[in-house]
């Protein structure tokens, strides 16, 4: 029997509440989940953990989501990044997409929209 290694997802969010909710939803789908509580730790783990997908909050103290996207792009990180934010402005979405985000999802977590977006993002990488 061939062991299937499930993709690894890095969740970066300053809110423990959000990390917990996201982790439980993703783990429930069988993904491996690692978490970081700010952009700085997240950026280190993006390299050390070599995740297949990064889910990143926007509003965080210190290195926020926008800065993280810039650092990832400038650092040549090819892991897809899903921005996960409560900010529903179209202008915010445009800024994130312009910074290289794979997609922008709005909080609160809705399994129905989160899971397909995660799958799309991971598949996009496999194709690359």
């Amino acid at each position: 029997m061939r062991e299937v290694v499930m993709p690894k997802i890095l969740v970066i969010d300053d809110s423990g509440f959000q990390r917990k909710v996201l982790s439980s939803v993703l783990a429930g789908e069988g993904y491996q989940v690692v978490t970081a509580e700010d952009g700085e730790v997240g950026f280190e783990m993006a390299h050390s953990e070599a995740p297949d997908l990064i889910i990143c909050d926007l509003l965080m103290p210190g290195i926020d989501g926008y800065t993280f996207l810039k650092m990832a792009r400038e650092g040549g990180l090819d892991t897809p990044v899903l921005v996960f934010t409560s900010d529903i402005q179209k202008s915010t979405r445009d800024i994130c997409m312009g910074l290289g985000a794979f997609d922008v999802l709005n909080k609160p977590v809705q399994k129905e929209s989160l899971v397909p977006a995660v799958e799309r993002a991971i598949r996009s990488r496999e194709r690359v």
């Binding site: 809110s15 423990g16 509440f17 959000q18 509003l59 934010t85 409560s86 900010d87 529903i88 402005q89 179209k90 915010t92 709005n106 909080k107 609160p108």
Partner: peptide
């Protein structure tokens, strides 16, 4: 933290 996230979500919608 949980309260902040709830408020965050509301503020995000309000911003929209």
């Amino acid at each position: 933290d949980a309260i902040r996230e709830l408020i965050n979500i509301g503020v995000g919608r309000a911003a929209g």
